[in-house]
Simulated assay, not measured.
Amino acid sequence: MRTLNKLKLSLFSLILIFIFGCHSSESNNTNLLAPTISIKLVDKSGDFEEVNVEVVDVLIKMDNDWISLNSNQKVINLLDLTGGVHEILVDKFPIPPGTLKQIRLVLGENNTIVIKNDFNEGVAHDLKTPSAQQSGLKLKVDALIEEGFTYDFVLDFDVDKSVIIAGKSGNINLKPVMRVTTEVSSGIIEGSVLPVDESAVASVVDTKGTSETEDDEVISAYTNYNGDFALWGVPTGTYEVVLTPVDSNSKYKVTTVSDVEVVNGDITVIKPAIELALKEGTITGEILNKNVVVTASIVVNGIDIQVNTNQEGVFLLENIPIGVYKITLTPADGSGLVKVELNNEEVKEDQINDLGDITLPEV
Score class of each variant (00 low, 15 high):
residue 260 V to G: 02
residue 16 L to C: 11
residue 147 E to T: 12
residue 69 L to F: 05
residue 191 G to K: 04
residue 102 Q to S: 03
residue 278 L to H: 14
residue 157 F to A: 01
residue 283 I to V: 14
residue 185 S to T: 13
residue 283 I to T: 08
residue 326 K to Y: 00
residue 41 L to G: 09
residue 5 N to G: 05
residue 178 M to D: 10
residue 30 T to M: 12
residue 249 N to D: 04
residue 259 D to R: 07
residue 232 W to K: 02
residue 18 F to D: 03
residue 286 E to L: 13
residue 237 G to Y: 04
residue 287 I to A: 03
residue 203 S to T: 01
residue 137 L to N: 07
residue 293 V to T: 13
residue 180 V to T: 12
residue 78 L to V: 05
residue 215 D to Y: 12
residue 204 V to C: 11
residue 141 V to C: 06
residue 30 T to L: 15
residue 322 I to R: 02
residue 215 D to M: 09
residue 64 N to C: 06
residue 19 I to P: 00
residue 100 L to S: 05
residue 323 G to E: 09
residue 1 M to Q: 11
residue 10 S to H: 08
residue 318 E to D: 14
residue 246 V to W: 06
residue 313 G to S: 03
residue 203 S to M: 07
residue 90 V to A: 03
residue 334 G to L: 06
residue 321 P to T: 06
residue 19 I to D: 01
residue 155 L to A: 04
residue 159 V to I: 10
residue 230 A to H: 06
residue 240 E to K: 15
residue 76 I to E: 09
residue 273 A to V: 03
residue 274 I to F: 12
residue 197 D to H: 11
residue 218 V to I: 14
residue 103 I to A: 03
residue 50 E to H: 14
residue 269 V to F: 10
residue 174 L to H: 03
residue 24 S to F: 12
residue 73 Q to L: 09
residue 45 S to A: 14
residue 72 N to M: 11
residue 286 E to C: 12
residue 56 V to N: 15
residue 89 L to C: 06
residue 52 N to K: 15
residue 45 S to Y: 00
residue 323 G to H: 07
residue 317 L to Y: 07
residue 264 N to M: 00
residue 138 K to H: 02
residue 10 S to F: 10
residue 230 A to N: 04
residue 224 N to F: 07
residue 73 Q to W: 03
residue 249 N to S: 10
residue 212 E to I: 09
residue 289 N to G: 04
residue 94 P to S: 15
residue 326 K to M: 09
residue 81 L to M: 10
residue 105 L to M: 10
residue 142 D to Q: 07
